[in-house]
Write a protein that binds this DNA or RNA. Structure first.
Lengths: 177, 177
DNA sequence: CTTTGTTGTTATCGACTGATAACAAGCACT
DNA sequence: AGTGCTTGTTATCAGTCGATAACAACAAAG
């Protein structure tokens, strides 16, 4: 049984999807390109050839995730351009834990210059997007980002999102939201 | 020139201090025990013998950092038991970037069961400590933790703390605080 | 001064892991 | 059918890294 051939671009998409899952679980340094290849159903050397290096693959994964976050916000703002609506959109993103946790891993790995630059650029862009879309005051926007970071960290700790670990303090924290 | 001999406990303290710096920079998976040894001025195998495994060393480092955070809060609350005072204490912790960034790396690495458990336990304990010390409402405490996470992420991205990378959105965000 | 326990080192292994090279298989076009 | 480009694989390397073992240096006690 021969596998279906795809264009490099199409296969790249599949690899990127696998990379989100893998990097979300183990972070930049902790993820093996071999694991990504396994998830994508291709060989490890091919993953490298499609993206050059592991770091470039991670950067591409970060870009992809940030694009999805911004897109989710823009789509939400079409219905109603306020922070509450964007918050709902963010909560839906939490259903795919890996997504936001990849972001967190990017922030955490900012000591690597290329990753730090990408993290700062994209975080700033998300902040800007939130403000532009909603017209929120700097203070409101800051609180929105802060809550987002709290939820992202909680997602990494697996106390929000699918199959959450039971945790008294977590339910405590969430019920005031 | 022979080095000064210390007790295992004393040397362990020095290694732990080095581990905070190293893990803060590169995270759990990205840090080599060799680098920690170099910073502590001992051999790599000795680091392993003092703590058993790299994971146990990371867990010990997490505990140490969380102890310091809680201690800072308790000390601050002795002067004045409100969130603003604790916030000032937190800002002082930011002066040592590695400290809080180690925490972030712990949260991010929560897919590793032992690290996840430790992260959840300690985060919950910090939340509890904040509430107990200040008597803040659940909502106030949640906002406090959220702001803390935002600042921690910004510390990882090197836009707050010592020698910050210049960044328009970061100054924007901070001036409303 | 030798014995014993503790602190620390050097040497080294074995497994892993990202990356490269060489090759194979499929598709399109003449 | 042959030619050339793209997709994908297997084989393999070179460097890394945590961990173990064996040994050395030092101190305290009898």
């Amino acid at each position: 049984m021969t596998r279906t051939r795809l264009t490099a671009a199409e296969r790249g998409e599949e690899v990127l999807e696998a990379a989100i899952v893998a990097f979300g679980e183990s972070g930049y340094a902790g993820t093996k390109t071999d694991e990504i290849a396994r998830l994508a159903g291709v060989s490890q050397p091919y993953v490298i050839r499609l993206f050059g290096t592991k770091q470039q693959l991670f950067l591409a994964t970060l870009e992809r995730v940030c694009d999805q976050v911004e897109q989710a916000f823009r789509t939400a703002a079409e219905k109603q351009a306020d922070l509450e609506t964007l918050g709902d959109a963010f909560n839906q993103l939490l259903e795919r834990r890996e997504l936001l946790v990849v972001l967190l891993h990017g922030f955490a790995a900012s000591a690597e210059p290329a990753i730090g630059k990408a993290s700062r650029d994209r975080f700033g862009r998300i902040y800007r997007t939130v403000r532009d879309l909603t017209g929120a005051t700097p203070e409101e926007a800051r609180e929105f980002m802060a809550t987002g970071m709290l939820l992202t960290v909680m997602a990494a700790m697996q106390v929000v999102g699918p199959n959450p670990v039971a945790c008294t303090w977590a339910t405590d924290l969430l019920e005031t939201l």
